Simulated scan of single mutants.
Amino acid sequence: MHLSPKIFFEHCYGKYAIAAVNVFTMEQVLGLFSAGARAKAPFIVQITPAARNYAHPAMLIAMINAASKIYPKAVYAVHMDHGNEEHAFDAIRSNDYTSIMIDASHDSFKDNVKRTKAVVEEAHKKNIFVEAELGVLSGVEDDLSIDEKYAKYTQPSEVQEFVELTECDSLAVAVGTSHGAYKFSGGSGIQFKILEEIQRRLPKFPIVLHGGSAVNLEEIARINRAGGSLNEGASGVSPKEIVKSIAYGVCKINIATDTRLLWTRVHREFFKDTPQLFDPVIPGKTYMAEYEKFMLEKFDLLGATGKVSDMNI
């Protein structure tokens, strides 16, 4: 069942969080829907501009629609992530998305408001939920690269004015997470004082954490043992911090890096352990099974398991 994140966030606020997962391939889509249906957990399927360029929006939406027929009990939203105006307006016209993000966070406050408001006005005509971003995250995700020295925490003093001026429906904030596999080089973690102040100024308003992957060090070690060369000092968001953030109004946790690391580990080990094989179906099946296992654990961590049964939909 394809729903709006608005329904999810009204139900989960302060109690549990929704996993929002970037997808590029059939294996990821099937693994995500299989896990969501099995766990009876609501989830958000995220499509980035890089994914749209890789697989074409029509192909991605077709895979998602097919997965919803294969797993009819899955309850989900489809979200266009980190888009500019071109991506946003195309998504609005398509009628395939219940949620979009306009990312003007690298602009000045004034320009961010202007660009976000223009997208919100068009999206709301079709009852499409709009996520905006205030503050700049460091790291690397898809074709987005931001040096850490340019990263800027969200200023709590700006959030209320920003939401009132733009009329956005949720807000992604920069509070210490980062994109990509090279996170928290300074070891500071989530800044809960900032989150607390944002919640005080925006009570009951859904907050989004980008860069929410954990970056399992065992996955990195296994990748490197199979021929990889990833930074073994990388770290993501600790599970304890993710769980703690829910009480501060964080309703949506974005996940991308962890599923990529999982893909890399499965395929590197396949080629290392069975160099005589070349059938993509073999590692593909392994990846789908590992992906489902990963997502089931993530739904448990976020407290989302079984929550579809409580939503009265």
Rank of each mutant, 00 (worst) to 15 (best):
V113L: 02
G233P: 01
A256P: 01
K307D: 08
T154V: 12
D103G: 09
N312D: 13
D81R: 03
Y13W: 13
N53T: 03
K73G: 12
S145Q: 13
I198Y: 04
E196P: 06
H210C: 08
Y16T: 14
F33T: 00
Y287W: 06
G212E: 08
G211W: 04
I198T: 12
P239W: 07
E121G: 00
P283K: 01
L277Q: 12
F294Q: 05
L277W: 11
E131G: 02
I146R: 04
E232V: 12
V250A: 09
A37Q: 15
A62S: 14
I70S: 04
S178Y: 04
L296G: 10
T25C: 13
I246V: 14
N112H: 10
F129V: 03
E10R: 15
K307N: 13
R93E: 12
V45R: 03
A104N: 05
G249E: 07
T286F: 01
A35E: 06
A39Q: 10
T154Q: 10
K69T: 09
V215E: 12
F162Q: 02
Y150T: 04
K69G: 00
T25Q: 11
H179N: 07
A214G: 03
K40H: 15
Y16W: 15
I100R: 03
H179I: 08
R268I: 00
I100F: 00
P57F: 14
V136G: 00
I242C: 04
N127V: 00
K285L: 13
N216P: 00
K298Q: 15
F184G: 14
E121W: 00
